[in-house]
């Protein structure tokens, strides 16, 4: 029997969606060998969180009422102590920015292997099979490992757990070595505000690295003008300073759900797709027929944007 310990994620007083998804992932994995699913909820208003997390399939919830916000040292110390106490076979964590700030440390401290950004999991009790992507999503791979492991899971891959559960909720008596907490969170800041809110647009003309140079951006602006649409972009365009931060779609930018999303020279990396996959109709213009964006597009043009975009603009002039 392989027990699973899954770590939940919250920020500034709210549980994040992946906390409910990790229940499903953890339950499915534990079920393969009839194991138990334990959840840990660390820092913040843990009792309130625990109540919300008590959904169908959770056997036990361990709360740690220590500090308000995320601190990787507190997480690492708590999870290693929980592992010693509960002896689960698998520790699951979200592949979030915070997950990546403690999961590798937990694995190293416990001398366990780590596999990140899993999109599929299975076990026979000895061998863990993990499906994950490589090369920015161009291929998928199956990997295997023996024994105990730490795994981070991709968000929005498993459905959120529902229903009400009857988990035992217990405060875990953790010993935090405060001298070992070498980092301190001093605040938060929202970035990317400004005059335009791309999440309100009906049509987004979204540009990626395929545009090659800043000097080429005007051909996208002309199209947006002709269509009366709004311009958005993938991350490299903003990193390069060619468009302001409030235009960035994706994990670290905005989530958008327009009627039509036109992805121009964008490969469709997972962090980009996280921000636009809810769009009604997705059109991809890309020279690469194997670009991952094609896997979620409704319509595609496998051609050079420098030929397609001027022709499209002309249609509306």
């Amino acid at each position: 029997m392989s027990d699973v310990l899954a770590i939940t994620d919250h920020r500034r007083g709210e549980l994040r969606d992946v906390s409910y998804e990790i229940i499903t992932a953890g339950r499915d994995l534990a079920d393969e060998t009839g194991g138990d699913l334990h959840l840990a909820v660390i820092s913040g208003t843990v009792d309130e969180f625990a109540e919300k997390l008590d959904r169908e399939g959770v056997d036990a919830i361990h709360t740690v009422d220590y500090g308000e916000e995320f601190n990787h040292g507190v997480y690492t110390q708590t999870i290693t102590q929980l592992y010693d106490e509960l002896a689960p076979q698998y520790v699951l964590a979200p592949n979030s920015v915070n997950g990546l700030d403690y999961a590798p440390a937990v694995a190293n401290e416990l001398d366990l292997p780590i596999v990140t950004d899993a999109v599929g999991l299975e076990t026979d009790g000895d061998t863990l099979g993990v499906t994950r992507e490589m090369f920015g999503g161009k291929v998928e791979t199956a990997t295997e490992l023996e024994g105990d492991a730490v795994v981070t899971i991709r968000s929005a891959e498993w459905p959120a757990a529902e229903g009400t559960g009857d988990a035992t909720i217990e405060a875990f008596d953790v010993e935090i070595d405060e001298d070992a907490l070498g980092s301190t969170v001093t605040g938060f800041e929202e970035v990317g505000g400004g005059d335009v809110d791309i999440s309100e647009a009906d049509v987004l003309v979204s540009v990626g690295r395929g545009i090659e140079e800043e000097d080429n951006i005007p051909i996208i602006e002309e199209l947006a003008d002709a269509l009366d649409a709004t311009i958005s972009s993938s991350r490299p365009i903003v990193d390069n300073g060619w468009l302001p931060k409030n235009r960035q779609v994706g994990q670290s930018g905005k989530v958008v759900t327009p009627d039509v999303y036109i992805a121009i020279g964008i490969s469709g990396a997972v962090q980009h797709v996280a921000g636009m996959k809810g769009s009604d109709t997705i059109v991809a213009i890309n020279t690469d027929p194997n670009a991952p964006i094609m896997d979620i597009a409704d319509y595609a043009i496998h051609d050079d944007l420098f030929d397609v975009i001027p022709a499209l603009t002309e249609e509306f002039q």
Binding site: T141, T143, E144, L145, D295, I296, D298, Y299, A300
Partner: peptide, 20 residues
Amino acid sequence: GAVTLTDMYEPESESDVTVW
């Protein structure tokens, strides 16, 4: 290392894409 690679393949499409 503890991790072995056992398979690699192209991901299945999630959408029914119309290619123009």
